[in-house]
């Protein structure tokens, strides 16, 4: 049996199930009630410390914090090439159509005033562009949301 009692540091380490160098302590605590009691006391104290009530605020801090956050401007990401290629494809298709069907269009628009024609074309283009923009924005939002929930679910 180790003659001296264990040091307080050793008693704590044993109570915390941390490694204590040497082997003599094992035999010592089997025969020394004082050290064994001290380890048991420390164990009880550590268990009670983790069982202590944790402080909380009366109100929901998460809501408070989020309401005070500055508005974030999304960092500009490198522009994707997809919209550009789609645009080129659309213009090419329109060009081919006009080239092939040009004569029919001329017949069709013979009686229409040129001012009226410009107005019609401008309106059609504006509506198409706005629709595309909205579709793209909705798509992006949905993808972000999907990615976020997929990640938080795992």
């Amino acid at each position: 049996m180790k003659q001296e009692h264990l040091s307080d540091d050793e008693l704590q380490q044993l109570a915390l199930e941390q490694e204590v160098p040497g082997q003599q302590w094992e035999a010592h605590i089997q025969q020394c009630a004082k050290c064994a009691t001290a380890i048991a006391d420390y164990r009880a104290m550590f268990a009670a410390l983790s069982a202590m009530e944790k402080p909380v605020f009366n109100l929901d801090m998460e809501i408070q914090i989020l309401s005070k956050l500055p508005v974030v401007t999304t960092a500009k990401r490198p522009a994707s090439h997809l919209p550009m290629w789609l645009g080129i494809a659309a213009i090419t298709m329109a060009g081919i159509t006009v080239w092939v069907m040009g004569n029919y269009f001329k017949e069709l628009l013979k009686g229409v005033d040129s001012m009226m024609l410009c107005l019609l074309v401008a309106t059609a283009i504006t509506i198409t562009v706005l629709q595309c923009r909205e579709m793209l924005a909705t798509y992006r939002k949905k993808m972000e949301l999907l990615k976020f929930y997929q990640k938080t679910a795992t």
Binding site: P55, F57, M61, L66, L69, A75, F148
Partner: peptide
């Protein structure tokens, strides 16, 4: 950093206990 405030809410939920302590 992309502007997702819900992600910051997750960070708050995960760390609030420690900060409050």
């Amino acid at each position: 950093l992309k502007g997702n405030q819900q992600a910051f809410a997750s960070i708050v939920r995960q760390t609030e206990g420690l900060v409050v302590q």
